[in-house]
């Protein structure tokens, strides 16, 4: 709102308009640099391998080879990996929403002995780099006989300290009146949570969902550690194994990479404001 107030006065001055020209020059150049690798990847994915590795630059392929994308599905365990990625991301996201909203609500609104200690324990994880718990998580999954399986891939990521923190903050900021009214109407605490508070928390739940999807879809180290064979890996780890091949078919690798990124990139472009605002406010990678 303050922006629109400021706009007319600043717009009128010549210097402001001049600075917009400079701004557009800088931002368009910078934006082109940011977007270029994606564009270049699309071009390479439609070229022949000879064109990619040619020492004289080929900036546009002689013929657009869409069949490189078909090869991705034929030659690589791409479909298996895609399925694994989809399952992994879906299960983790739903589980985090369920567990984190429940716990976040209790930490924000319920009184029980030891709540402060439990909360401090959960939040303390946020200060510990993931390497510290990764080794033992691996040993637990190994001990349960869940290496190379979907449950093994998914399990530690069902729970999130960050998500709990996020949801607790969301519930703390909500008015108590609705809750109290529902209680007076005889609703039990779960009904109050489910029917009254959860719908109100939708914006924060979407932030949690977006961060979980992004993290889960792109995550590399955990899948790399708990899976051995490329057809059991999600895409993030599966793509990384392609690169070791001696005879790299670059156009197919590029096509596979683009297909692997596509769901998240499309999600981002569709929900851009929500993603950007959500990640800016959460400040988490």
């Amino acid at each position: 709102m303050s922006e629109t107030v400021a706009r007319p006065s600043v717009r009128r001055s010549g210097r402001a308009r001049q600075s917009h020209v400079v701004a557009h020059l800088v931002l368009a150049t910078g934006g082109a640099v940011m977007a270029f690798p994606f564009v270049w990847q699309v071009i390479m994915s439609l070229s022949t391998n000879a064109e990619v590795v040619s020492v004289t630059p080929v900036f546009w392929p002689a013929e657009l080879r869409w069949d490189n994308y078909a090869v991705v599905f034929d030659r690589l365990p791409f479909l298996d990996q895609l399925k694994t990625s989809v399952w992994m991301t879906t299960i983790r996201t739903l589980a985090q929403i369920l567990f984190c909203t429940l716990a976040g609500y209790a930490f924000a609104r319920m009184r029980f002995r030891g709540s402060g200690v439990l909360l401090a324990l959960v939040l303390s994880i946020l200060m510990v780099p993931s390497q510290v718990y990764l080794l033992s998580q691996y040993q637990i999954i190994q001990g349960l006989g869940l290496l190379d399986s979907l449950p093994g891939l998914v399990l530690p990521g069902l729970f999130s300290a960050f998500g709990t923190f996020l949801m607790r903050t969301a519930f703390l900021g909500m008015p108590r009146e609705l809750e109290e009214a529902a209680r007076l109407d005889g609703a039990n605490p779960f009904q109050v949570f489910w029917r009254v508070m959860l719908p109100l928390a939708r914006p924060s739940i979407s932030v949690l969902a977006i961060t979980t999807v992004l993290w889960s879809w792109n995550e590399l180290l955990w899948p790399l550690v708990v899976t051995t064979y490329s057809d059991e890996m999600p895409l993030s780890a599966g793509l990384a194994t392609l690169i070791g091949d001696r005879t790299t078919d670059y156009p197919v690798v590029m096509a596979a990479s683009l297909l692997a990124m596509a769901p998240v990139l499309i999600l981002f472009i569709v929900l851009q404001r929500r993603v950007i605002d959500g990640l800016a406010s959460s400040g988490m990678k």
Partner: peptide, 26 residues
């Protein structure tokens, strides 16, 4: 204030951050 295409630029700058690291590394 009043910069046009600001959201478009924002999306361009943010795109690499949401891209899968292993995919864009290729």
């Amino acid at each position: 204030p009043g910069l046009r295409f600001a959201q478009f630029y924002r999306v361009l700058f943010f795109l690499p951050y949401v891209a899968m690291p292993t995919a864009i590394a290729m």
